[in-house]
Amino acid sequence: MISSLMEYNGYHAKVEFDQEDQIFIGLVLGINDSLNFHGESVKELTQSMHDCIDNYFDYCKKIGKEPERDFHKA
Rank of each mutant, 00 (worst) to 15 (best):
1 M>W: 12
2 I>G: 01
3 S>V: 12
4 S>C: 13
5 L>A: 10
5 L>K: 15
5 L>T: 15
7 E>F: 12
7 E>M: 13
7 E>D: 15
7 E>T: 14
7 E>N: 15
8 Y>A: 11
8 Y>D: 07
8 Y>P: 05
8 Y>V: 06
9 N>D: 15
9 N>V: 03
10 G>T: 06
10 G>D: 07
11 Y>H: 12
12 H>Y: 12
13 A>R: 03
14 K>Q: 09
14 K>F: 09
15 V>R: 01
16 E>Y: 00
16 E>H: 04
17 F>T: 02
17 F>M: 01
18 D>W: 02
18 D>M: 01
18 D>E: 09
19 Q>A: 03
19 Q>Y: 00
24 F>S: 04
25 I>F: 05
26 G>D: 03
26 G>P: 02
26 G>T: 05
26 G>W: 01
29 L>Y: 02
29 L>E: 15
30 G>C: 08
30 G>S: 10
31 I>Y: 11
31 I>E: 10
31 I>H: 12
31 I>T: 13
31 I>D: 11
32 N>E: 14
32 N>P: 00
32 N>A: 05
33 D>R: 02
34 S>T: 15
34 S>G: 06
34 S>E: 14
35 L>Q: 11
35 L>S: 05
36 N>H: 08
36 N>K: 02
36 N>V: 03
37 F>I: 06
37 F>H: 06
38 H>P: 01
39 G>H: 07
39 G>R: 09
39 G>E: 07
40 E>N: 04
41 S>F: 02
41 S>N: 01
42 V>N: 09
42 V>G: 06
42 V>Y: 07
42 V>W: 09
42 V>C: 01
43 K>A: 14
43 K>Q: 15
43 K>F: 12
44 E>G: 00
44 E>A: 09
44 E>N: 03
44 E>R: 00
45 L>N: 02
45 L>D: 02
45 L>R: 03
46 T>R: 13
47 Q>Y: 02
48 S>T: 10
48 S>H: 06
49 M>F: 11
49 M>T: 05
49 M>R: 02
49 M>W: 04
51 D>K: 02
52 C>F: 04
53 I>T: 09
53 I>C: 12
54 D>S: 10
54 D>I: 04
54 D>V: 08
54 D>E: 11
54 D>W: 08
55 N>K: 05
56 Y>W: 10
56 Y>K: 12
56 Y>N: 11
58 D>A: 13
59 Y>D: 07
59 Y>K: 05
60 C>V: 12
60 C>G: 08
61 K>M: 06
61 K>P: 01
62 K>P: 00
62 K>M: 09
62 K>G: 08
62 K>C: 01
63 I>V: 15
64 G>N: 09
64 G>V: 14
64 G>Y: 07
64 G>K: 12
65 K>R: 14
65 K>E: 06
67 P>H: 13
67 P>I: 10
69 R>F: 10
69 R>A: 14
70 D>C: 15
71 F>I: 13
71 F>W: 13
72 H>P: 04
72 H>E: 14
72 H>F: 15
